[in-house]
Simulated scan of single mutants.
Amino acid sequence: MKQLPNILTLGNLFCGALAIIYILHAPQYIAEFNGHDYAVTNPEPIYWASALVVLAAIFDFLDGMAARLLKLGSPFGKELDSLADMVTFGVVPGMIFFRLLRSAYMQMPDVFDVSYINLAPALLVPCFAAFRLAKFNLDTRQSENFIGVPTPAVGLLVASFPLIMLYNPFNLAHYLQNIWVLYIMIVILCYLMVAEMPMLSMKFKNFNPAQNWPRFLLLILAILAIPVLKFATVPFVFVIYVVLSMAARPATSDK
């Protein structure tokens, strides 16, 4: 039982590493169009990567819960958790953006291949995630709430994009095939991770409605949105989370 939180954290890391394998080894086939051969990626493995990020987020939630319930929190566990989060919620979203950008470029007319220079901005996501996680480990103000959007929230948001591409609710897939939309999202997410903005933690210390109204409201809106928005619920909840955090201005600890 002593190592249970660390085992759960390693489950998070295992899922993240496997997700990267699925993304980078998505099989390609050659399609002919207007006399030219195009390398087309089979997107199915990327959907599996999305599912693995969700499973990793469950492990990430359970390891913290186990550490608190069993009173097994330690500096080692905190560092291990950040290392796992860096892979799952930093590198994996960067790889998904990499694939989405490549796909978006291949939709453009007269494009036969894409330079890696055009795809390199996707790697800003893991870079900013690393910066945020290192800062989190040293910042004593983030013991109760966050400063900047936590990396798991970014990871889950980006992991929803392949599923939105698959099911295309409200024709959102059209926007995820636009290179400028993708570049703008990369910039916004990188900024939000390191911004000096107090953000809500979803940990309930009690169930007092007056103290937890933003958390209750976020949960209620998420539940109501699922039947209507389906996979688009994830970006909807992400935006509401940021707006509620800014409206509620959660206090940060200076201990």
Rank of each mutant, 00 (worst) to 15 (best):
Y241I: 10
L72Q: 10
L218I: 06
L72A: 04
C127A: 13
L101K: 01
F33L: 13
M65D: 09
V40K: 05
N137A: 10
D254G: 08
L52E: 14
A104T: 11
Q177R: 13
A31I: 10
V228P: 00
A66W: 00
P43H: 03
V194L: 08
L221N: 02
L4S: 08
A159N: 02
N34R: 14
V40P: 03
A31S: 13
R141M: 10
T233P: 04
T88W: 01
A195W: 08
G155M: 01
L219M: 13
I188K: 08
A248P: 12
A134S: 07
A84R: 04
I226K: 07
R102C: 12
L229E: 03
L219S: 10
A17V: 07
F146M: 13
S74M: 03
A195M: 05
N171V: 10
T9S: 06
N206H: 11
H25Q: 13
F89K: 00
I30R: 12
H36Y: 15
V111R: 04
P227T: 07
S201V: 10
D110K: 12
G35S: 03
G35R: 09
M246N: 15
A210M: 11
G73M: 04
F136T: 13
V114L: 00
Y167C: 14
Y183I: 06
G77D: 00
L176M: 06
R68F: 02
A134L: 14
A210R: 14
L189K: 07
R68I: 00
L156F: 05
L163W: 12
E144G: 11
Y175N: 04
F170L: 12
F238C: 11
M193K: 00
P162T: 02
K203S: 09
